[in-house]
Design a protein around this nucleic acid. Sequence first.
DNA 1: TTGTTGTCAGACAGCGTTGTCAATCGACCA
DNA 2: TGGTCGATTGACAACGCTGTCTGACAACAA
Lengths: 338, 338
Amino acid sequence: MGRITIHDVSKAAGVSIKTVSRVLNSEPNVRSETRARVLKLVEELNYHPSLSARSLAGRSSNLIGLIYQNPSANYVVDLQKGALERCHTRGYRLLVHPCEGNDLSSVRDLAGLVLESHLDGVVLAPPLSDSTEVLAELQKHRIRFVRIAPTVDLDAYSCVYMNDVAAAREMTEYLIALGHERIGFINGPAGHPVTEQRYLGYTLALRSHGLDVDPQLVDRGEFTFDSGLAAARRLLSRATRPTAVFASNDDMAAGTIMAAHEMGLPIPSRLSVAGFDDSYVAQVIWPRLTTVHQPTYEMAHQAADMLFRSMGDEQPPRSLEIPYRMVCRESTGPRPAN
Amino acid sequence: MGRITIHDVSKAAGVSIKTVSRVLNSEPNVRSETRARVLKLVEELNYHPSLSARSLAGRSSNLIGLIYQNPSANYVVDLQKGALERCHTRGYRLLVHPCEGNDLSSVRDLAGLVLESHLDGVVLAPPLSDSTEVLAELQKHRIRFVRIAPTVDLDAYSCVYMNDVAAAREMTEYLIALGHERIGFINGPAGHPVTEQRYLGYTLALRSHGLDVDPQLVDRGEFTFDSGLAAARRLLSRATRPTAVFASNDDMAAGTIMAAHEMGLPIPSRLSVAGFDDSYVAQVIWPRLTTVHQPTYEMAHQAADMLFRSMGDEQPPRSLEIPYRMVCRESTGPRPAN
DNA sequence: TTGTTGTCAGACAGCGTTGTCAATCGACCA
DNA sequence: TGGTCGATTGACAACGCTGTCTGACAACAA
């Protein structure tokens, strides 16, 4: 009593296997009576087509990959949820692949994975979405891909993104509007796509309001809580202490809040703190974090969607911008009087 | 210029495809000279065997599934990391499948997925690990599985777990040792496997120290931040306000901390808060959370390992207990004087 | 010499689908 | 009546691998 195959169904229904195949793939030219009979047998026998056989014989494997590289846990979860949801409605499955290391070998591993698994396409999370090696390798093998939040070649390859510059600028302007003039900034790691963008937004806002970019007020972290904590400690113990700190992601903003607590600086009365991402921590930390809502779920959802559409006849847009949203909570307030 | 197949390699090496297959699968009876030649060609041609063809022709698909059902994001991430790491070293791939709904249809969906994808085995996350329907369905199709943190039939089916009762008891005793006598408890949702266990640990600790279990001090949440916040608000506004609250997971503990802040109760001087899981929030919230470290990563890692070992000749242990660890941080302190 | 054993390698039949092409069957038109 | 055409169906060869079986050859014993 092994696996139930298309032959079992065809025999039971008194038709050829090809007809069963036609029914399963909703192909035309099957009498509705025949279709109904086959469908009934499929149900009764609890038949499930082998996807391995399908991808071997056919053109599609109904499998796409989500490729990422040490991003924060919350980010991955949101991405995955978004992609998974879209996969579900389209009958696709999702293979997740954390791609560690940026060297050539892992890039080839990636190509290997795609080839071995017959992936129909891949969704590339940052910072991979900016890696020319990865893109080249994928192109070489003619593998469809959609990039999430890339910063280069927005029009050359398809992608889904948000405007990090505008968002960082708007957040900085929000702080300026609250009266802050000494606004610290915790930058992301050098080389990461969005790092430059968010910093650019910060500087643009300052300059357009006649404020200087003081290097003493800018520090750098690795997008992690610990690095944010360390950077905030340095920033807050400088002679010219900022009255507000804009951390370029929420994890580092959480570190900043911790540092402020350590130093006995009440938030927001003595120090305002803003983050970026609107990840889970932003909503559960106290005080709740003013931040930029990054539409991670939505971006992954749309990326998967673009992938699917490009597999069909449709010609989806090359690139798609998803709007961000300012989320003002209790971690920011007017500049202290002194 | 299509895909490179085993035929291309065999032709180039001047051997039969079977010999290439032997080399790739490290089978015996191949002259080392031949083996080397084949390996060289595989490298040169950048050949990647098709896993679809493999799973169709052979016995194994090199694919396992991680099945879960609306757990918290952090939990999934840890599980996934653990499983993924083990998969990587064994050359397996991981299919993630969020199984929504507990009804019969989704159970059949699950079986369908396993059949369609030729999964070699599945790792079952709670609360699925206790679902008799799921277990029955998997058994029916003779599919290997390992359960994570089940609470029933520990010896009947293979599983990896930790001792929730002992952990909850130890945490409660820690609070008692700090002098607390009115210790609130925020329970998990009814029906969830670990809910009973953790509550049991709480009551055992109280009783063994001559304290009563006061229903006024017990409330219930859904393992989410919001539900924890709501439960804590109720708990802290009762006439007999507790001096410590033990929330049965970290998300609800974070909600409790928020509620305390709202009410102007300093932590830990006026209220101690303890959580369970040692998830990411526990480490970034202020004050940092005293909690029980649940070895999620380790459990998933071991579960995947047991799966792999059971596929080989080995007979891994039926069940494996992973030790938990108390993590005492700044959210707990001695009972306030009044 | 003949048989026996062990090592190495190839031929060939699946695995469960889809794609291609040909066959059958009415219906419809001239 | 015969021919044409669309709708419906089936036969059969892929797809790229593994498992099984068989063959060739060398080494060794009887």
